[in-house]
Amino acid sequence: MSSPLSPQHAPVGDVGAALMLIDSQLKAVHNGRTATDPEQQALIDQFTASLGPEGANDVLDGACTLIYMFMTWLRKAHEDVDKDVIEYVVPTLVASMRRMPRSVRPEAIPIMAGLVIAAGTGLSPNLWRKQYGDWTEEEMTPLEVTTFLLAEHINRITEDPDFATRMVAEALSRSDED
């Protein structure tokens, strides 16, 4: 029986824009710049301002799709070595977010952990979240942090700083061909 929270019932959103934002953050960190680089932040602010409310919601859905894709990859990788993705990914993610109190308020951590657990168990993160009401402004940065940390986790596992981005870009290319 299919759950109403299954991914096939969820909007995919603007995965490309969400991926661009996360890739920008990954590259900034790997190039030794801080996530608060004023030039980068100005570009991100300009981009998000150009989206409008509907475009911003599409990017939000796209970020949730990225979380789902990253957790699907991580689940398969962990299953290959007889490990549980929830047991090995969620505690690390939560610990990382707890060390970022200026970006991730403590009350947002359970929500982000819930998104990741939903995705890790095959549910849509955005539909899981939607059952608790609308997204709040205070959840936007933690959502970005969650997506970034999952991508970085994949990149560390594969020992390839571009693997997560490339994996999604290739999936997007294949879907365009279909």
Rank of each mutant, 00 (worst) to 15 (best):
S6C: 06
A10K: 07
P11S: 15
G13H: 12
D14R: 13
D14N: 15
G16M: 08
A18Y: 07
M20C: 09
M20P: 06
M20E: 14
I22P: 05
I22D: 01
D23Q: 14
L26N: 06
V29C: 01
H30A: 15
N31Q: 14
N31H: 11
N31P: 01
N31G: 11
A35K: 08
T36C: 12
D37H: 05
P38I: 12
A42D: 14
Q46A: 15
T48F: 08
S50A: 15
G52P: 03
A56D: 07
N57G: 06
V59P: 03
V59A: 02
L60D: 08
C64N: 15
I67F: 04
I67T: 13
Y68G: 12
Y68S: 14
M69S: 14
F70H: 04
M71K: 09
L74W: 01
R75W: 00
R75P: 00
A77R: 02
V81Q: 03
D82V: 01
Y88Q: 12
V89E: 02
V90L: 09
P91C: 02
L93F: 13
V94M: 04
M97S: 10
M97F: 04
P101Y: 13
I109F: 03
I111Y: 00
A118S: 10
A119M: 02
T121H: 05
G122D: 09
N126L: 07
N126H: 03
Q131I: 11
D134N: 04
D134G: 13
E137W: 04
M140P: 00
T141D: 09
P142G: 10
V145R: 04
T146F: 04
F148W: 05
L150Q: 03
R156A: 14
I157A: 04
I157T: 03
T158K: 14
D160Y: 02
D160C: 00
F163A: 12
A169R: 13
A171D: 12
L172D: 01
L172T: 04
S175R: 15
E177G: 09
